[in-house]
Write a protein that binds this DNA or RNA. Structure first.
Lengths: 242, 242
DNA sequence: GCAAAAGTGTTGTGTATACACCCATGG
DNA sequence: CCATGGGTGTATACACAACACTTTTGC
């Protein structure tokens, strides 16, 4: 019945015609990032503090991949690149100002130690206290959390929440914080060692009055990377597409 | 350093200034669907036949979810709703006519028997012969294939490629076609029966000169549904967001 | 020598794989 | 009676969960 051409034509009419439905007939494309970190046994999400708390967001630029645009958001928040980023989902919504918006959401991870924070610094809100967020932000953040937890089961993304070197106990604590349940020490260590993703440094960390812990490093080369994400994620800039 | 407001401002400059990079400063949002079916032992993708073969596409409408818009694409191709649909990925690219486009891609599944095909009917191309597609379409289709194969392993989506009743051999053949490798009959049957997603009808299908096959039905109520897809996929229309 | 965290093995249970023959029917 | 696809069971390897004690250090 309807061909591509038909549809493009009817859209063109919309563009020039009056904005119906109190939403303009051409959408704004808006990126939002759910930036996680783990600190003091809590999973935190970075928010911008304006009139109200909002997920950090940005508009894409022509000739730039969406993934770069998402990374720019993180940079503007922290003055540091994230350690992991992944696209989540895209949805169409009408925002508070009745603007038709296409929201492309991302999840990002970073280690909490010495994150410098740009100005203004982000507000770090515990992931289970998102009640104050605006509806769309709330949905996006909730979904990011679901996905993060699910991915702990079959990927190694949790490493990206830790600094360059870390102890196995720190790693386990990160898992437990995100999942909010305790894990068995021996089983955890066995699995993570067997996965081959750890590089044992010769160093030890001596903390308090107890046995020092071995320090490990994340083997980026043994990381399958961004798992059910397309191979070309982040690669399609103007050059590539031409 | 840079706040949301800053970024919106600098973007506003772009909008009113000259379109740099030969791409307009406001993107077109374009949905594309990779519609799969299995027929005669081949995995096929539906394409529109214009000047060249293209993935079926569409533009979203304000106040409508992207998922509805994607479903509209399928309807316009087949005059039937799909049996399964899922969002894949969103990317930014500059198309052949140098228009800056945000491409939101979807994967959809349908049974091949008695699909009526709208006019003009789609061209069904084998999934391993996508060489003739335009770059973006090609990437999208390739990724859809990766995701479909991956999901066979941990979901039941393959059912959505079959008609309402089917034999276990038909189901197995669908899996084998998509994975392009043979599966063990006994193990396959054991697993699929154990999963509890099959409803055994009392009917049998008598084909040729051999034992008749039991017919099964898909238990939609036992299907976890759209798996790593957000719960609100397709729900966020104008009403919901307000 | 004691408090405090690091580190280490075994056993059972369930899940996935490999593999070969009999069954029901039509012609 | 034979050709054709439908249907069934067992043995083995591997992954995962449960569970408790010894080691090294600082004070």
């Amino acid at each position: 019945m309807t061909t591509v051409q038909d549809q493009r034509d009817s859209r063109a009419k919309h563009e020039t015609g009056p904005a119906s439905l109190s939403a303009a007939a051409v959408p704004v494309v808006d990126l939002r990032v759910v930036l996680f970190t783990v600190a003091e046994g809590e999973l935190l999400i970075a928010l911008r503090d304006g009139h109200e708390l909002r997920l950090p967001s940005n508009l894409p630029l022509p000739g730039q991949s969406l993934d770069s645009a998402a990374r720019r958001i993180v940079l503007s928040m922290l003055r540091r690149p994230e350690q992991y980023i992944e696209q989540l989902y895209t949805l169409s919504a009408v925002d508070l100002r009745e603007r038709w918006t296409i929201v492309v959401s991302y999840m990002a991870l970073i280690a909490s130690n010495d994150v410098p924070s740009g100005s203004p610094p982000p507000i770090w809100l515990p992931a289970h206290e998102l009640g104050s967020l605006e509806v769309i932000d709330r949905m996006v953040a909730d979904y990011a959390l679901v996905r993060l937890r699910a991915k702990l089961g079959y990927t190694n993304i949790a490493f990206h929440l830790l600094p360059e070197t870390f102890t196995l106990t720190e790693l386990q604590t990160a898992y437990e914080t995100i999942l909010s349940r305790p894990l068995d020490k021996r089983n955890f260590r066995r699995r993570v060692i067997a996965s081959g993703i750890l590089l044992e440094t010769k160093q030890k960390r001596r903390d308090g009055s107890h046995r020092p812990a071995a320090l490990y490093r994340f083997r980026a080369d043994h990381d399958p990377g961004t798992y059910l994400t397309p191979p070309w994620a982040g690669v399609v800039d103007a050059e590539t597409a031409a």
